[in-house]
Design a binder for these strands. Structure first.
Lengths: 158, 158
DNA sequence: CGAAATTCGTCAGCATACTGACGATCAACG
DNA sequence: CGTTGATCGTCAGTATGCTGACGAATTTCG
């Protein structure tokens, strides 16, 4: 009984959940190195990438777009606003909404960091062979789409 | 130029780093549902699983074992200690070390939650076909092992 | 043996990420 | 037109996860 528990414990490295946590952690480290010059985090650049494609999105829609809680999104926007990279303005039609926009400085920086972003994503999956890599990203997408809708944070799938 | 940035932004869902962040988030949600009755987090049960296999591990070694910072490990242990699931005692030989042990209550609970843990891991990769699933977990392992050693937090690979 | 380097645990500070709750606002329905 | 329900943003609280810094203890090496 004890032995069985012990055996299962040793297999931590074969557990998908454990591996995904660790890989995410590794991605954050890679990102921070590649984007060191810009001083941003992965979620911050995700927000900016969504905003350049859909300017004036309100915070709840933005949250759904990147699969993050409303509260977290609000905090992230506050930090970006403090740095002058985005701005928020209340919608006069629906006064519940606060719409977010990239500032010119934000647009400029996002453009400047594209290569660094590409490198970060590429480095994460670089150890795989090209066909493996393709299959891996496809499986990731399958899992994210199939398991979407667990809890308050639901990613808006196109 | 603007258009190019825009196109790349739209491809958020094809970015490995973004997908890994989201999948980790989903795993946490699945875990919390399956292990609701125990009130633990993924990292807390990882710590307990390591401690049942290696009782008396010091905090730095424990941190390396699960790939987490010393500071975080210390905080996690404090919470587990407050609940009476683990205990810490100073090593008389090397007074820098604080060794951690599961309490009987901790061992009991870890045993009781094995099925829930198995279900959480299984649900994460359930949408994949068996062969896909095997390849996916293998690729995850490859990426974690290849990219290990980015920053202060280094997972001790067996 | 003694100074220098290393290691361990902790503290402060910051950035995700969640839940539950709240007031403000808007939409839907009778 | 007014009440009910839903939605939006925010607040408070909690749990990872990181960096930089620190004191205490140990190890290394001249």
């Amino acid at each position: 009984m004890q032995a069985m528990t012990k055996d299962r414990a040793i297999g931590l490295f074969t557990r998908p959940g454990f591996l995904v946590r660790r890989l995410h952690q590794i991605y954050v480290a890679i990102y921070l190195k590649e984007c060191e010059a810009f001083g941003t985090t992965p979620v911050q650049s995700s927000v900016m990438q969504v905003l350049i494609a859909q300017p004036g999105l309100d915070q709840a829609a933005l949250a759904a777009e990147i699969g993050v809680d409303r509260t977290t999104t609000s905090n992230v926007l506050s930090r970006l606003e403090k740095r002058g990279l985005i701005c928020r303005e209340a919608d006069p039609k629906d006064r519940r909404l606060r719409r977010a926009f990239l500032t010119p400085a934000g647009e400029q920086m996002l453009g400047d960091m594209q290569d660094a972003l590409d490198r970060a994503h590429a480095r994460l999956v670089a150890p795989l062979e090209p066909e493996e890599r393709e299959a891996f990203v496809r499986d990731l997408t399958t899992l994210v789409e199939s398991n979407n809708g667990q809890g308050r944070t639901v990613l808006r799938i196109l």
